[in-house]
Design a protein around this nucleic acid. Structure first.
Lengths: 107, 107
DNA sequence: TAATCGCATAACTGATTGGTTATTGATAAA
DNA sequence: TTTATCAATAACCAATCAGTTATGCGATTA
C-alpha cells in the first residue's frame, strides 16, 4: 500500500533524515557504510533513519553480498505533491510542473 | 526572514497541526475558539499548534477585539515546493531541465 | 573452520514533544 | 465596577524520538 503523506512528512521532518535522503538523491545509490562515513552519527543510527525513510516509501534497498545498497525512490515524494495540490492556487503552476516531472521520472 | 523548509516540514509533521492547517485552508479565517470546537484537544493545545504553524510561516493571525483570527498563508508552503523541485529534479539525468524549472519558478 | 566485515536489532538514555490543568491578561458585557 | 469570555502562557506529565553501545546474523575472506 502507498504510504500516507503523514509518514512522508514525519520522515522528512528530521534534518538528519532529510540529509540522508538528499545525499541519496544527489549521489545515487549508496551503501550503509558509505552513508555512515559522511554522517556524523553511528551506523545503527543511520540504519534506523534508513528504515524510517524506507517505511515512508522514500528509499528502496538492494542486497548485494553483505552490503546493503539504498537509493532514493522518486515515487515516494508523490504523496507530498498530492497533498500540496489540495491547497491553494498560488503555487499551482509550480506544482503542475512537479507532477509532470515526477510522472516522467517514473518511466 | 523566510522560514526554512525544515521548520515547515516539522510543523506539518504533526497530524493535528496538519488538520488545523487544512481546515484553515478549506474554511478560511477562523478564531481559536472555532478551531478548538472542532479539534478534540484543549484550547491551549490549539494555541500552541497555531504558534508552531505561525513561526513556520504557514498561518497569520489578526486580532479583533478579544478574538484572535487565524488564516492559512499560501506562501508558507513555497519552501516545500522549492525543496521538492530541488531534490526531485536530481533524479533526472540532465540538469538543464532543472535550470529551466528554477528559472520559470523565479518569475 | 575461524575470523572479519556489513548491517540490523536490542536495550537503554536524555531530550523533545504533544497533551493536560491552572493561571493570567485583555476585551466585552452586565 | 464587576463579571464573563477569548486566548496565550506557565507548569507539569507521559510518550515519543534520536542518539548511544552491545549484540546477533548472514556473507566474505583467510
Amino acid at each position: 500500500m502507498k504510504p500516507a503523506s503523514g509518514s512522508v512528512f514525519r520522515a522528512l521532518a528530521d534534518p538528519t533524515r532529510r540529509s540522508l535522503f538528499e545525499r541519496l538523491c544527489r549521489e545515487g545509490e549508496q551503501t550503509v557504510w558509505m552513508l555512515t562515513r559522511h554522517a556524523r552519527i553511528s551506523q545503527p543510527a543511520v540504519s534506523k533513519h534508513l528504515a524510517a525513510l524506507k517505511s515512508a516509501g522514500l528509499v528502496r534497498d538492494r542486497r548485494e553480498g553483505r552490503e546493503m545498497h539504498y537509493r532514493a525512490e522518486a515515487k515516494g515524494l508523490s504523496p507530498l505533491v498530492d497533498w500540496l495540490g489540495l491547497y491553494g492556487a498560488f503555487w499551482r503552476d509550480r506544482m503542475d510542473r512537479l507532477e509532470d516531472l515526477l510522472k516522467r521520472m517514473d518511466q
